[in-house]
């Protein structure tokens, strides 16, 4: 049992990007996604990529960590590309194989999609690598606050995220323990066909669920006993503050958006 389970992929370092307000980073990611999807042509992607690369350099996080995120979604990217190649309708047929045909338009669409996805994933990696889960939760709570009027439960979402983050390692340890206990009683989690595997997992899942419910029950009591009543009249010890660096970042973001927009006049 290893207790050093890291959640998320926070890479601790002291950089300008790390010290940004989490709300700034969240907003920036949001804006970046909009920019990506409205980029008019290949130059737009080049500029986006350059901008992102600049941020990565500033963040002092090794590039290989950024690419790690890509590895996990590699298949999704391939899948999207294949879908685009074969199923985007187009005029210029390059070659045909039965009902499958590859068109120039399809290839372009696939390339565009791949660029978007790769940049998008790298950009979100930058966010999660430079922002601790706690900051991220705080950021999300604050960022969602304006939407509370229309019924978005900002505080509840943030509290749920906090509790999830808090209990993931605990439940992982528990899973490990129950699994070992059942293996000691001769349980076999590894072999057999799919049905057998699914059946084998019951002795693990039932105790795990029971324990999770018990924990939830006890946690609720503990929260109540410490006067928790939702976000009614609730203050925070840490108050998020935007500093000069955040405003500089906002300005750069606007400039960057403008650059991408103006690439449409390059062709």
């Amino acid at each position: 049992m290893n207790l050093n389970i890291t959640i998320g992929q926070y890479y601790p370092a002291s950089s300008k990007i790390h010290s940004l307000d989490p709300r700034t980073k969240l907003l920036a990611l949001f804006v970046f996604i909009i920019i990506l999807f409205s980029a008019p042509n290949a130059f737009g992607y080049v500029v986006s990529a350059l901008g992102l690369f600049g941020v990565i350099l500033m963040s002092k996080v090794p590039v290989k960590f950024m690419l790690k995120g890509l590895r996990n979604v590699f298949f999704i990217i391939i899948f999207t590309v294949v879908l685009n190649v074969f199923f985007v309708p187009g005029e210029t047929v390059l070659f045909q194989l039965g009902f499958l045909r590859v068109t120039l338009e399809g290839l372009f669409a696939a390339a565009r999609m791949a660029c978007r996805l790769v940049l998008l994933i790298i950009a979100s990696s930058v966010l999660t690598l430079t922002t601790s889960p706690i900051e991220l939760t705080d950021g999300i709570e604050h960022a969602l606050k304006p939407f509370k009027k229309i019924g978005v439960p900002a505080h509840e979402i943030a509290m749920m995220m906090t509790i999830a983050l808090r209990f993931i390692p605990t439940l992982m340890e528990e899973t490990d323990r129950i699994m070992k206990a059942q293996i000691s009683r001769g349980a076999d989690f590894g072999s057999g066909n799919l049905v057998q595997k699914a059946k084998a997992i019951i002795p693990l899942l039932v105790p795990l669920f029971i324990s999770a419910f018990r924990r939830a029950d006890e946690l609720a009591l503990a929260m109540e006993s410490r006067c928790y009543r939702g976000d009614e009249n609730r203050t925070r010890m840490k108050v998020l503050k935007r500093g000069r660096i955040d405003y500089i970042f906002y300005l750069s973001l606007i400039l960057f958006g403008a650059c991408v927009y103006f690439t449409r006049f390059l062709l």
Partner: peptide
């Protein structure tokens, strides 16, 4: 089952925050 926050000092702040 009675520690709510993900870091120690935040958890201690939970009561007064409420």
């Amino acid at each position: 089952n009675q520690i709510i926050a993900t870091i120690v000092e935040e958890d201690i702040a939970f009561g007064p925050e409420n």
